[in-house]
Simulated scan of single mutants.
Amino acid sequence: MTHITWEAPYCGEGNNCFRIGTDGEGRAYIAVTGAEDRYLTDTHEALRALIRDIKAGKADHLLR
């Protein structure tokens, strides 16, 4: 199993908390806080773009 080092949780308004992680090979991961065993993985830049869009309100429909 891949060892993932998780960063501190980021929490927006309400209960929308997630964490970003990386493994020893430089892959990036994102998961809802408390469910780190069910994660999405992609490149750092792709996950950063996703987070920027969520923060900008472009993906509110995904959080409802």
Rank of each mutant, 00 (worst) to 15 (best):
W6D: 07
I54A: 10
T33I: 02
Y29S: 00
E36D: 14
L47W: 12
T43P: 14
I51P: 13
D42N: 12
I30F: 12
I54K: 04
M1T: 04
T41W: 02
G21Q: 01
R52I: 10
E36V: 12
I30T: 08
M1E: 06
R64H: 14
I51M: 07
A46F: 05
E36Y: 03
G14L: 00
N16I: 12
E7A: 15
D37A: 08
H3Q: 04
R48N: 13
I54M: 04
Y29E: 12
G14F: 07
G14T: 00
K58G: 07
I4V: 10
L62N: 01
R52K: 08
E36Q: 11
T33Q: 11
A28D: 09
L50W: 15
G34V: 10
E7Y: 06
A49I: 02
D23Y: 06
A35T: 14
R27G: 02
A28K: 12
P9M: 08
D42H: 07
E13S: 08
A59I: 04
F18E: 13
I20P: 11
E45D: 13
A28I: 02
R19Y: 00
D23C: 04
L50Q: 14
M1Q: 08
G34I: 13
Y29I: 03
L40S: 09
C11G: 03
A56H: 12
G26I: 02
T2P: 15
E13A: 11
T2H: 01
E36C: 10
D60N: 13
Y29A: 00
T2M: 03
E7T: 10
R38M: 06
L50A: 15
F18A: 03
D23V: 08
H61Y: 13
E13D: 14
D42M: 04
W6S: 05
N15G: 15
L50V: 12
Y29T: 12
E25V: 06
E45L: 06
D53P: 12
A35V: 04
N16W: 09
Y10N: 11
T2F: 00
T41G: 01
G12P: 11
Y29F: 15
R38Q: 10
E45T: 07
A59F: 13
I54W: 04
L63P: 02
G14D: 13
L47C: 11
G21H: 03
W6R: 09
I4T: 03
G21T: 01
L62H: 04
E13C: 04
H3P: 04
N15D: 15
L47N: 12
D37I: 11
Y39S: 10
I4F: 00
P9G: 01
K55E: 15
A59C: 09
A8R: 14
K58D: 06
R48I: 12
Y29G: 03
K58I: 02
R52F: 11
G26D: 07
I51S: 04
G26A: 02
L63E: 01
N16P: 02
R19H: 00
A8P: 15
